Simulated assay, not measured.
Amino acid sequence: MTARELYDRWLHELWNGELDRLERLAEGVVAGDFVGNWPGRPALVRGPGQLAAVIRQGRELFDELRFEVALGPVGDGDLIAARWAAHGRHDGTPVTFHGHDLLRHADGRFTEYWVIAEDPYRPTA
């Protein structure tokens, strides 16, 4: 599987996927020993179930939230990096925010994740 194919699964199956299927989808995209790191919160997430819960919690704060690839993904060995943009509505106000993902993979699934993202509550002009 190419870096693009693997990252497409990450972004489109999980972050844009059906909320009622997140746990099952996460099991197919990340390894059982997956570790997710957010700024100031290392190892915030462990395993597919916790990842699905964090994705659901974040997505439920917005209406019509969609993620798209802005740059990449770029693969180097067992690492994949990409920049993304998210568009949605918060309290009826359009919002757009961006972030960077860095993921380590093995055997067709992600094992580690580091993210940096902008403040999602900044309204779109």
Rank of each mutant, 00 (worst) to 15 (best):
G47I: 09
H12T: 09
E68F: 06
T111M: 05
E18L: 04
I80A: 01
G92I: 07
Y113P: 00
E27K: 08
F62Y: 10
L22E: 00
H90M: 12
D107M: 11
L79S: 00
A117T: 15
F110G: 00
E112F: 03
V95C: 12
Y113L: 14
A26V: 06
P39W: 08
T2N: 14
M1S: 15
P123E: 11
V74N: 04
E64N: 11
Y121W: 15
P48W: 02
V95G: 05
R109S: 09
L14G: 05
V30T: 05
D78I: 07
L6V: 09
W10M: 05
W38S: 07
G36S: 02
L71W: 13
R24S: 07
D8R: 10
V95P: 10
L79R: 10
R83N: 00
E13I: 12
N16G: 11
R21N: 06
D8T: 13
I116R: 14
P73N: 05
V35H: 00
A117Q: 14
E23G: 05
P39H: 08
H100N: 12
Y7H: 11
H98F: 13
A70W: 03
G75F: 07
P123R: 12
L22P: 02
L61T: 14
D101M: 04
T96A: 14
R9G: 02
G75L: 09
E68D: 13
V95N: 04
A85L: 13
Y113I: 06
D91R: 15
R66S: 09
R89P: 01
P42S: 03
A52H: 02
I55S: 02
G72I: 03
W84D: 00
V30E: 00
T93A: 14
L22Q: 02
E118Y: 09
V45H: 00
T93W: 14
H105K: 11
R89S: 06
D107A: 15
E13P: 01
E5D: 15
D101L: 03
P123V: 13
F34R: 00
G28E: 12
D20E: 14
V54H: 07
R56N: 04
R109P: 06
V30F: 03
E60S: 06
A52G: 04
R24T: 06
P120H: 13
A43F: 01
D107P: 13
A52K: 00
A53M: 03
G47H: 03
D101R: 04
V35K: 04
R24I: 05
P42N: 04
E27I: 06
E68W: 02
R41N: 08
L102V: 15
G99P: 10
A81P: 00
R46Q: 13
L102F: 11
H105F: 15
G75S: 08
A70N: 01
D8Y: 06
D33N: 11
R122S: 12
G28L: 09
V30G: 00
W15I: 09
V29E: 04
A26E: 01
R24Y: 01
L14M: 13
R41V: 07
R122M: 12
D101K: 05
G75I: 10
Y7W: 11
N16I: 12
W84G: 04
